[in-house]
């Protein structure tokens, strides 16, 4: 297998109205990697994702498993790469949820039995079991998002592109969705997600790209989220848990690598308490308040 699943090189795109949405963007994802695409509203995230399976065609090149998509038949591309749009109303067009989720697999020429199995399993995964006969148009927005995801899950592509998959989902559903995404990643799928959900990114992403028409930064979650200036410049924020631990340092908690997720926080707490003989000491000294102020200011939380 080639060592790069998705490779975008020097991609630029101008909308017909003259709006330069992408400016010389390059990005790459190795097989099995999960890439998070962050950036402010209007940064061009959706525009970039629409290029990856050939819907939009900008200048520059896009290679999927080493092959330029310009030279490939559309039907070959879409079997490899599935895209879930930001707006589920764009994604769902059949008269029933079942038909919509079965649409892709049927076009792939799978057997009746196989299609049925895939539809059933996709709907079950996203929590829409029993919705088979509903008209997609009449679903709630969150349900539509889930159904839209199912239409791609049922195709089982190697590369999955998700544009804001969790927007408008209730907290439980959002958790469940990211759990599915994690499972897909564990199965070796390559995933690219555009999201504003900062809290979840460190838990799932191997690499982050920050896009604002250009690629502003690229790095691991740790590299990105410890760069306060960068975050501020790009309308981003560190995860809440990271902020909390930075504030804890003002109270004397010893912490060099701030945890980015709950899991990391638990590990960190456990370790530092264990090394201190089962206790943790926090205290207030004269500089504490000033230090806290500095931190809240850094994150833009000052009152």
């Amino acid at each position: 297998m080639p060592d790069i699943a998705v490779e975008v090189e020097a991609l630029s795109y101008k909308y017909p109205d003259g709006n330069l949405a992408l400016d010389n963007v390059s990005l790459s994802a190795s097989p099995g990697e999960l890439i998070a695409l962050l950036g402010p509203n209007g940064a061009g995230k959706s525009t970039l994702l629409l290029h990856l399976n050939g819907i939009l065609k900008g200048e520059g090149s896009i290679r999927i498993f080493g092959e330029d998509i310009k030279n490939k038949k559309r039907s070959k591309i879409i079997e490899k790469i599935g895209i879930v749009f930001q707006d589920p109303d764009d994604q769902l067009f059949m008269p029933t949820v079942f038909d919509d989720v079965a649409f892709g697999p049927l076009n792939m020429g799978l057997s009746k039995q196989e299609v049925k199995m895939r539809v059933e399993s996709a709907l079950k995964k996203v929590g829409l079991k029993g919705y088979e006969d509903r008209c997609p148009h009449n679903l709630s927005f969150g349900e539509k998002k889930k159904a839209a995801f199912a239409t791609i899950l049922s195709m089982e592509p190697e590369i999955i592109i998700l544009d804001e998959p969790a927007s408008n989902l209730d907290p439980q559903s959002s958790r469940a969705l990211f759990k599915i995404i994690k499972e897909l990643k564990d199965k070796g799928k390559t995933i690219i997600i555009a999201t504003h959900d900062i809290g979840i990114v460190p838990e799932i992403a191997d690499k982050i790209y920050i896009l604002d028409h250009k690629i502003i930064a690229e790095g691991t979650p740790r590299q990105i989220f410890s760069d306060a200036d960068l975050l501020k410049k790009t309308n981003l924020e560190a995860p809440k848990i990271t902020m909390l631990f930075e504030i804890l340092t003002c109270f004397g908690y010893n912490c060099n690598d701030l945890p980015l997720s709950i899991d990391e926080a638990i590990t960190h707490l456990t370790q530092s308490i264990e090394t201190k003989g089962g206790h943790m000491h926090l205290h207030i000294h004269e500089h504490t308040h000033n230090e806290i102020k500095k931190i809240t200011k850094k994150y833009g939380h000052h009152k």
């Binding site: 629409l50 819907i55 879409i78 599935g82 895209i83 764009d90 067009f93 649409f103």
Partner: peptide
Amino acid sequence: NTYHAMTSRGY
């Protein structure tokens, strides 16, 4: 957009 969604899934 719907047409894109359709071709993206093999229409």
